Amino acid sequence: MKIDTLGVQAFVAIADQGSFRGAAERLNITQTAITQRLQKLEEYLGVPLIERTTRSMNLTETGRIFLPQARRLLAELSAALIEIRETGMAQRGDVSIACVPTVGVQYLPRVLRAYAARYPHNRIRILDHASSAVAQAVLHREVEFGIKIAGEHHPDLQTEPLVADSYVLVCHRDHPLARRRRIAWRALSDYPLILAGDISGNRALIDAALDGSGIELHSFYEVQRSSTALGLVAQRVGAAVVPALAIQKDAYPTVRAIELVEPAITRSLVLVTRKSASLSPAAQALYTMLANSRDGNVKEILNPAD
């Protein structure tokens, strides 16, 4: 059903002003326009709302009953529009995002703290998924935007670079490699490793980078989350290859992180949105803060000065 708000507005103005001329002046339109709007509303309703003669103008019984309802309708519409405008200007509202789990360890929290300080009333829902699931969540409108590993994606999605993240070896401080500052990937062949499973985008990226190099990694334990790998390392189960962003400062005092070289393998994290999407003001504010943080150094995030 199409609601004729202009006609309702004209009817209320005529009733309040007591004349078509007064209503036209109040709405800053011509008398002809005010008459046409009322006529259109009456034609739609199928009943007259105002009795008009050359000398007088009075509400019909239907018009008299409808007037308070019309006033309430316009007041509610005005209040709703004001609320939307003020919410947009204040960038208030709830936000849903998806991200790969390692982003939620160090990188995302720092941005969220700044966001919460600026927009303390906004609630944020975070879905931590594998990279492919992040893309699906954005595509299917489960979230407004996401953070995933760069790579091929659906043509209806678009990405924006966020941060580069290198892979490191993590091991217990009693491990034979714990005193090394850097180590070549080839040297890992002699040790049982904890590696990401096939569901993780990290495994595919590492396998592709090492393809053709002759380097063979021995996966004794397979996990889906880097947090699980770090827990196993802390209990001396083995050494693991994880993204640098997965390491939470001071969470595991007995765990050491060692730079992996020859080759140096990094992954690029990107912001992902639907091409046709128009983010809510609250989500746009968070997206902008994340985009503006993309020049941040991963080492600075892992070892903040404050």
Rank of each mutant, 00 (worst) to 15 (best):
S293G: 07
E142Q: 14
R182G: 13
A80C: 11
S280M: 04
T32D: 12
M1N: 12
P155M: 04
V105N: 02
L286A: 01
Y167H: 07
A23R: 04
A98W: 05
T5C: 10
A184S: 13
I126R: 03
I14S: 05
S56Y: 11
L127W: 07
L230N: 01
T288E: 09
G88A: 05
N292H: 13
L41G: 01
Q284V: 05
F11Y: 10
A117H: 11
D174H: 11
Y191D: 08
E42T: 02
P304D: 02
D306F: 15
I301H: 04
V270D: 03
L286S: 02
P243H: 03
D207G: 07
N297H: 13
I199V: 14
N28Y: 13
A130L: 12
A277S: 14
V255N: 04
Q235Y: 09
R110Y: 07
A117N: 11
P176S: 06
L195G: 04
A137G: 06
R181T: 15
N202E: 15
R72A: 15
V237W: 09
E300Q: 14
F66S: 12
V100C: 08
T30R: 03
L67V: 02
V138F: 00
P304V: 06
V237Q: 13
R52D: 02
A239M: 07
P101M: 02
V241E: 01
D94R: 15
A208I: 08
V255G: 04
E300Y: 10
E86N: 11
V241Y: 01
S200M: 01
V12G: 06
N297Y: 12
L73K: 09
A291G: 15
R180T: 12
V12N: 05
K275Y: 06
L230P: 00
A70C: 06
A208Q: 14
